[in-house]
Computed example of a mutant assay.
Amino acid sequence: MTEPNRTRCVLRFRSPDRPGILAGLAPLLTSNGWDIREAAIYGDPDTATFFARMELASDSARTADLAQHIAPAVAALGLDWEVHDIAQPMPVLIAVSKFNHCLVDLLHKVEIGALPIRIVCVVSNHEQERKRVEWHGIPYHHFPVDRSDKAAQERRFLEIIEESGAELTVLARYMQILSDDFAGQLEGRCINIHHSFLPSFKGAKPYHQAKARGVKLIGATAHYVTADLDEGPIIEQDVRRVSHATTAEEMVAIGREVEASVLSRAVRWHAEHRILGNGNQTVVLN
């Protein structure tokens, strides 16, 4: 049920794991007019770290007041915290090459209200998706890749990210290897869909690699982009069963459906502020 007249936000934090973290925080929230509408937690025994995400609502308090309200718990419990206003959908830039199935899926899910994002523009190194994207009323930027000066194309790409106000960049089968500098500048705010079940079968034609190895499961992986190719923290994965009789071309077709669903889930979780970093891993609080 929507609550249009209430302040709504997400509070998420990590802290050293210890007893009484929520017991120390909840009374501060309640006494300052905050209602906890949803909460998810995880205590990692390997790192002794506690992770939490809370959706809060208030009739009297504002998001800007929250820092003051939880200040005693921040000091006492050592919270590393963030607060996010969830009244507006997250602005997202999508990058695509020639394969359009992930782009089409994201466009459709935004259109029907299934993703809490606003697509601010699409960037591509090809022209073929311009008509589709502009039909949806979304700006389309064609940045062809000049192999002799790829840095210039990446500089323009970064400029568009900043100019558009995109808080997340989604590589929806954007079939370009990003430079270390480019990837580093987007770390933590760029999601890639890899058409394979990482860490297996990296690089080009993973389904053909999988066929050659006789695999019985194929899948897709959504992960955050880092300077290490296909090594960023994994957000979501899924698989489909195949057999010795499944051709590489059939695997590609099956894989496209998996890629689209995995990517949209990762984008939704990021936009809902459900993902927290945990070393080279992610904690997804659903």
Rank of each mutant, 00 (worst) to 15 (best):
T226F: 03
D180Y: 01
R213D: 06
P199S: 14
G188F: 13
C190G: 07
I193N: 02
D230E: 09
L229Q: 00
H194Y: 08
A204I: 11
A227K: 10
A220Y: 09
Q209C: 13
A210P: 10
T221Y: 04
S196A: 13
Q209L: 13
F182E: 02
I218V: 10
H195N: 06
A227L: 06
P233G: 05
E231I: 01
C190Y: 08
G184F: 11
K202M: 11
S196T: 08
A212T: 03
F201C: 09
K211R: 15
V225C: 07
D180T: 10
H194K: 00
R189N: 14
R213P: 05
Q185D: 13
L217Q: 07
A222M: 08
I193E: 04
Y224L: 06
K202C: 13
I234C: 02
V215D: 02
N192M: 01
G214V: 01
H208A: 12
I191L: 08
H223Q: 05
N192K: 02
H223T: 04
R213T: 00
G214M: 05
P233T: 08
A183K: 09
D181K: 12
V225F: 05
D181Q: 14
K211N: 05
A222G: 09
Y224I: 14
P199V: 11
D181S: 15
D228E: 07
G232Q: 03
G219W: 09
H208F: 15
I193M: 10
L217N: 06
V225W: 08
S179P: 09
S179D: 12
N192F: 06
N192A: 02
D230V: 02
L217V: 11
I193T: 07
Q209T: 12
H194D: 01
Q209G: 10
E187L: 12
L186S: 09
P199Y: 15
D228W: 05
K211P: 00
N192V: 02
T221F: 00
T226L: 02
T221N: 03
A222P: 10
R213V: 05
R213A: 10
A183M: 07
A183W: 11
I193C: 10
I234D: 01
D230K: 03
Y207V: 01
R213Y: 13
Q185N: 12
D230I: 04
K211H: 12
G184L: 05
F197T: 09
Q185L: 15
K202L: 12
I193F: 12
S196G: 09
K205A: 15
F182T: 11
Q209S: 14
F201A: 07
Q209R: 15
V215G: 08
D230A: 05
I191H: 01
T226I: 03
A222N: 08
G188T: 14
A210T: 12
L198W: 11
V215E: 04
Q185W: 13
V225K: 08
Y224N: 08
H208W: 15
Q185P: 01
E187Y: 12
Y207H: 06
Y207P: 00
H208K: 11
Y224H: 10
Y224V: 15
E187R: 15
I234H: 00
T226Q: 02
V215Y: 05
I218D: 00
H194Q: 04
N192W: 04
T226C: 01
F201E: 03
A183G: 07
P206T: 05
